[in-house]
Design a protein around this nucleic acid. Structure first.
Lengths: 151, 151
DNA sequence: CCGCAAAACTTGACTGGTTCAAGAAAAGTG
DNA sequence: CACTTTTCTTGAACCAGTCAAGTTTTGCGG
């Protein structure tokens, strides 16, 4: 049983976006689905478990194409490499750990398009408001809270 | 007449943060003040108009130290290099141009700590909510709107 | 079922912002 | 003014991401 999107769905997604259906692309979509918020390096590794011969360049190209087509979403928190997640309709945001860079999804408290209307937009035609929460993840907090034996 | 922060103020800022007062540091602070949202390269150039002999490494170190001390704020919109601005108390955000990368300040519509409380924080100890608005700046919009003569 | 043009992938070199390391030069302290 | 620590200089290395040229596939039309 498949949890989220099935093989066939990915194929339809690609065709719907006028993108040819290829092995690398299906593998990348599957990898992104299985490893949300993974960076390019991890995705490359993940993809190679299915298609050992893919070039790193192919993965870059595919991720670029999928991002342009809106099938996946690219996020780049300061200090991290590019990370990817399957595009879901809801406008959710992310919490990023200051010490280890871990990322988790969050729905904004203000459900509907949070703060989309800026006070003074300086003439910019704004089409998206991206919210990044910064903090410390449970794991890192636990580590930092260890009995500190300063000599 | 000096608009914002004066020479002496910068020196006090540094001492207050337990940082030694050096020529490169004062020059970097001045450069950041004069060129808000400038990337490292531009700042290096700006600093060298005052202190021609600074190494690029010094600028990196200084920016790092000032950022750690909280005297300047580093922002890294996806697709841009690191950019810096003088730290101001207000919790303001940024609009970034999708085509040229230009950055401008914006006060969030929800004046006070916008969306700081996430619905489900996944156990993270959140201390900041960073909002990035994405759009197209006036200049780029004008260029894109030129009479398009497709043949 | 076969061949063709466009789109995708492979290979391999390269770029450029950022970082590392070791020594010289200042800043602050008593 | 000598001393310790921090900071700056020099120069090399790193590495995610990009470029370019050539080969392979895909999807389509005959």
């Amino acid at each position: 049983m498949d949890h989220h999107t099935t093989e066939a769905d990915f194929e339809l997604l690609l065709r719907g976006a006028d993108l040819r259906v290829t092995r690398p692309r299906l593998a990348v979509l599957r990898a992104v689905g299985r490893h949300p918020h993974a960076d390019t390096g991890s995705l490359l590794t993940a993809v190679r478990t299915e298609v050992p011969a893919v070039s790193h360049q192919a993965v870059y190209d595919v991720l670029g194409a999928l991002t342009d087509a809106g099938l996946v979403r690219r996020i780049q928190p300061a200090g991290s490499m590019a990370r990817y997640e399957l595009r879901v309709g809801d406008n959710h945001h992310h919490v990023v750990c200051r010490s280890c860079g871990a990322v988790a999804d969050v729905d904004c408290a203000v459900g509907h398009t949070p703060c989309l209307a800026a006070a003074d937009d300086h003439g910019f035609a704004i089409d998206e408001a991206e919210v990044t929460y910064w903090g410390v993840c449970p794991a890192c907090a636990a580590t930092a809270a260890l009995p500190d034996n300063r000599s």
